[in-house]
Design a protein around this nucleic acid. Structure first.
Lengths: 261, 261
DNA sequence: GCTCATAAAATCGTCAACGATTTTTAGAAA
DNA sequence: TTTCTAAAAATCGTTGACGATTTTATGAGC
């Protein structure tokens, strides 16, 4: 389950000095070292990814506390690196950092939800318009390939995988716009939307969404900017309307939620 | 010269334990303690603000190195807090953080510049359209007040002050759109644009820009969305066209550039 | 049994120090 | 003088520890 959150390729050259140090003092939690398989790769990205995936797959419901010491022993790193990752997650609105009170998984309010979708509509409209201007024939082929992937994911009926392909589709369309900055903003917004959808959507409208994706590609391939924008808007409005406001909750350990057990 | 970069109200309750500790060891730079007047207020915001202002006012040209130890002694804090601020500045694209090689003031390439302006046009177009829908009579009054401020700033002919009022105008118009998320993105982009404009614009087109601002307000007040969007676009295109690619450079100390001397 | 005050535990914010990497400087050879 | 090499300095990444704040647990009083 490898998602595609904002990648941070920096820090490619790691010291990895601490990771080699023998015992890092007696760990108090019984699950210490579970994720310390490591080896020296980019630990920050791994932690970010784990939390990100956990949130998107509903293993980490909103309000879940993410204590720094727990993450430290789970990933075998010191608090400084965990803290840095948490800051990045906060900036991406995945978690909320309350001073002196720790980090929790963000819980978007209905009002925020509305604004997030409104912003997303604005950005995707602008990007689709650019995509219509700038796309090539090869791009359309790739979009069709993505649509085919969606059909396969639908057949499997595994929601997280389907959601992933849907995200990919939107991001690929946006990439055709050719503006990395707008694309980065949209990536952020799609993450937040996915978080919300993962929480609230009853799931089961995949076929409907897929149809709408096809419409969008059709309009783009024909160079019909107006229709492409309209189709995208209708799609996003539909997505927002389908969400309802209940949320389940069960009691698990943090390691379980992060899929590290 | 108090700008308005993305405010971070968090960390309102500070420990301020370290700030009271007597001597923090002998400082090597002769300008140590200059900015340590402090008192316990929000230090992070002060550091962010200083660098931000320094960049916008051209005291910190692109490529200027920002060594952590220097900032530490200048502001009388440890590297942890400086490091946190630098991370925030990096995220806002004000500085660039090169692993193991330190932080430098960001130097946008011409290509980046084009993309930044393109993204800004897309966002401001969307926000102006929302503003036309949602503005009230009182909002128009406030915009007129801002336009009046611009005239005063023009009379003084002090470029940074004028740039500040121009920023305020755009942000206020955007605020009328009523979407905090799009507003936050635009705030980021306006900062980056200001950085670029401060660097490259020959300055002297204030009157011209002011006229265009007036046009925009006029269109909004009359509820003419199409004209408002067109006016905003024309304004931004003009702004981009006026920039040219030279840059001055002089040798100063970091304390001088940060206006702490 | 419930409520409130107190103490213990957990957690966070900051700091100083160590090791690693990069940059700069100094010096020898061509 | 220039160029290349090696040592020194500067700078960064990470860690462990200390104090402060918050949260949870405990127990007396009603």
């Amino acid at each position: 389950m490898t998602q595609t959150p904002p990648a941070k390729p920096r820090n490619a050259s790691k010291t990895a000095a601490g990771a080699r140090k023998a015992g890092r003092g007696p760990a108090k939690t019984d699950m210490a070292g579970i994720a310390a398989i490591d080896g020296g790769a980019d630990v920050e990205q791994r932690i970010y990814q784990s939390v990100f995936d956990g949130v998107l797959n509903q293993r980490l419901p909103p309000g879940t506390k993410l204590p720094e010491p727990a993450l430290c022993s789970l990933f075998g790193v010191s608090r400084a690196v965990v803290r840095k990752v948490l800051q990045r997650l906060e900036h991406d609105h995945i978690v909320e950092l309350r001073p002196n009170r720790g980090a929790v998984v963000a819980a978007p309010t209905p009002e925020e939800t509305r604004k997030i979708f409104e912003a997303r509509r604005a950005l995707e409209a602008a990007l689709v318009e650019l995509a219509v201007q700038r796309h090539s024939g090869k791009d359309i082929e790739e979009l069709h390939a993505l649509l085919h992937q969606e059909e396969e994911a639908m057949a499997n009926a595994y929601q997280p995988a389907w959601a992933q392909t849907a995200r990919n589709f939107h991001l690929r369309v946006a990439a055709l716009g050719g503006n990395p900055i707008l694309l980065a903003y949209l990536t952020e917004l799609i993450s937040r939307c996915s978080l919300i959808v993962a929480l609230y959507e009853p799931a089961g409208n995949a076929a409907c969404e897929h149809e709408e994706h096809c419409d969008i590609v059709d309009a783009i391939s024909k160079g019909d900017a107006k229709r492409a924008v309209a189709a995208m808007n209708a799609h996003l409005v539909g997505l927002e309307e389908r969400i309802c406001l209940e949320r389940p909750s069960s009691v698990k350990t943090l390691a379980q939620m992060l899929n590290l057990a």
